[in-house]
Each structure stands twice: as C-alpha cells, then as structure tokens.
C-alpha cells in the first residue's frame, strides 16, 4: 500500500502535536503551541484562498473578529452556548464573505485585496466604536467553553493550557484534513486552473466567479473559527483581533512557510508565533531579525520555506 502525500502531511502534523510536549520545559509552552495551532488554522484558510485559488485577501482578520465577538456577544444577547456561538459566528462570516465577495470577485485583478482591506478595517472600527454593544476598545469577556469540565467528569483531567493545546491542535488537524481533501477534489483542481490562468480556466468551462467566491467563503470560515478559538481560550477579546496588522500577519505566515502547501502554512505559523517569544532577549532588534528572516526567505526560497526544502530533499534523493 502506498501512502499518499496527504496522509503523510497529516501524520507529520499529528506526530508534531503529540511529540512536541515532551520538549516542553514548562506549561507555558502549551500556550505557545495552542497559539501556533490557532494561527495555523487561519493560515490554512489563506492557503485555500491564495495558494489554491490565487486570490489575495488583506482583511481576513475581520472574519476572525466576527468569530471572536460572536463568542462574546451571542451568549449574552441570544442566550446560546458559546460553542454554538462559534458556529453561528462561522455562519455569519460565511454569509458576509458571500455578500462582500460576490460583486467583487466578478472583477479581475486585485480588487479583492483592496475591498477586503477596507472590510477588515471596517469590522475593527465597528468593534471599537460600538462600545455599548461590544465593550469598546477595552474589550469584552467571553464565557468558558465548559468542555474541559466535561472531560474532567469523564476522568480525563487536563490543565487549562493542556486542554487548549489539545483542542486547538485537533481542530487544526481537522482543518488541514479538509483543506488537503479539497486540493485534489474537482473544485480544488478548478481553483488551481484559475490560479494558473483565469482566461484558460474560463475557456475550458470553469465558472471562475463562482469558484473564487467559494474559496473566499471557505477561507473566511477558517479565519472565523480561529478567531472563536482565540476568544474561547483567552476568555477575553479586544478589537485588536480584527486589526489590520493581524490580517497582514496571516498572509505573512502563509507566504513565509509556502502558500501553496498546508504544511508550509503551518510552518509559517510556527516561525512567526515562536520567533517573537525566542527573541524577547533582544526585544529591540526583534523587528530587524524578523525582517531579515522574511527577506532571506523571499530571496532564496521564493515558494516559501517548506516547498523549497521539500524540493531540495527530493532532488537529492533521486
């Protein structure tokens, strides 16, 4: 039996999540791990949109904001459980992505980039200015998910950080699995066709506008779930989650690791989440080092870190 590259990617991912804790000197690292997985999940969404379908969004943090604030606001105003609120947030994000994307994605070029940029900033502004509803710039508290106490009752006792490490890790594996399945599906092939050439894809009968819209909606759901996970883990959320810098961070992670590959995107999330923690000793030079890493990757590994390394190892193996 031949193992497909999809299964290998998932196995590597699972192994990483399972083995990493053996290297953790303290439970702080579970927190960093959980942040890596949450960022990774959002970045897998970017891989679908940018890596598969070739579209650029500079406002995905807006969807993370919607997912996060759904967890804070829906339980308070609609009386539903936070878990359901996260799903509701994902639905709202999908609908908004559909409404925003539908007119824009009929156009060529970088209109989506510009429009999504505006959308993301708009969400951040609404979240910080509608203080009576959202708690304003100082943020708002989020209810406990309650899953940890359920697990506790079942005899599986985890600390808070261990639980979030495992929970967001598993969510990431599911997200990565879905994304990998999409890659080889007819939709995924059509995406890659329109990524290669929109004109050629249209000539062979691909409904370009509809497929671009699908990719945008799916990636918005990824961002929304990531935002919800962040809100649920922190039990507190501020409008920063929807901020412009967060959008840029997502795209940067995807591009750094390799925007065409799910594993690459996760690797990008690892680097950009862990590096700032490792660089606290030279806090003043953190931005310089990060910038240098980015430049070197862009110059010497133009497809991103993981695809370039894979090619290097394959090339040597043959």
């Amino acid at each position: 039996m031949r193992i497909s590259s999809k299964q290998i990617t998932l196995l590597v991912l699972l192994a990483l999540i399972a083995v990493a804790p053996f290297f953790f000197p303290s439970s702080f690292y579970y927190r960093v791990g959980a942040l890596v997985f949450i960022n990774g999940l959002a970045v897998v969404g970017i891989v679908i949109l940018t890596g598969y379908a070739g579209q650029i969004s500079l406002g995905h943090a807006g969807f993370a904001g919607i997912g996060a604030y759904a967890c804070a606001l829906a339980p308070a105003h609609l009386g539903i459980h936070v878990g359901l609120a996260a799903i509701l947030g994902a639905l709202i994000s999908a609908v908004i992505a559909y409404l925003v994307g539908r007119p824009i994605l009929r156009l060529h070029g970088y209109y989506l980039g510009v429009a999504s940029l505006g959308f993301g900033i708009l969400v951040a502004m609404v979240l910080s200015n509608e203080g009576q509803l959202t708690g304003g710039p100082d943020g708002i508290a989020v209810n406990d998910l309650g899953l940890r106490s359920v697990l506790n009752d079942m005899g599986l006792s985890l600390t808070n950080s261990e639980f979030w490490y495992a929970f967001s890790g598993l969510t990431l594996v599911v997200g990565a699995w879905l994304a990998l399945n999409l890659y080889n599906s007819p939709t995924g092939r059509a995406w890659r066709a329109l990524h290669g050439s929109e004109v050629a894809a249209r000539t062979v009968g691909v409904d370009v506008a509809r497929l671009k819209l699908q990719a945008f909606v799916i990636s918005a759901v990824y961002a929304s779930i990531a935002g919800s996970l962040l809100a649920l883990q922190n039990r507190f959320i501020t409008p920063e989650v929807a901020g412009f810098m967060h959008s840029i961070e997502m795209v940067t992670m995807a591009v750094l690791g390799g925007v065409g590959s799910v594993l690459g995107a996760i690797f990008g999330a690892i680097i950009l989440t862990v590096l700032p923690q490792a660089l606290t000793v030279f806090a003043e030079h953190e931005m310089m080092v990060l910038g240098l890493v980015m430049m070197l990757v862009m110059i010497f590994m133009r497809e991103g870190v993981v695809p370039t390394l894979l090619r290097f190892f394959r090339g040597r193996g043959e």
Binding site: V12, A15, A20, F23, P25, V32, A278, L310, F313
Partner: peptide
Amino acid sequence: NKTLTTKALTGILALGLA
C-alpha cells in the same frame, strides 16, 4: 528526513526558549 528535521527543529526551538 522531513519528519526528523521538523522534530529536531521543534526540539531546538523549545530548548532555545528555555
């Protein structure tokens, strides 16, 4: 190779943080 590299890398990063 890839798996080992990634694991080793994680290990090194974890040590570097500590």
